[in-house]
Amino acid sequence: MKIAIDERYCTGCGICIEVCPKNIFKDSYMRSQQGYLMPEIKNEKNCIECNLCEKLCPEMCINVVSEEVSQV
């Protein structure tokens, strides 16, 4: 699982923090390129790929990439 927030476009609205059912996004003191307070990603491995963060981000700056499932 790889979750990335594009710091060029994040406006710190906080919707991803509220909507994630696994509480992967948290408030932080990191700043985006435009100066907004950005969320940080904790416990990325808990992601269940519901994609709610992708669908509800108003700047479309969150991308959830599925990891290949190993055959072993």
């Binding site: 060029r8 476009y9 406006t11 906080g14 919707i15 435009q34 907004y36 669908k55 509800l56 108003p58």
Partner: peptide, 14 residues
């Protein structure tokens, strides 16, 4: 054309 002019959390982006 990015970044958008939308305010943080604006429904337009969604």
């Amino acid at each position: 054309a990015l970044p958008t002019i939308f305010c943080p959390g604006c429904g337009d982006g969604q």
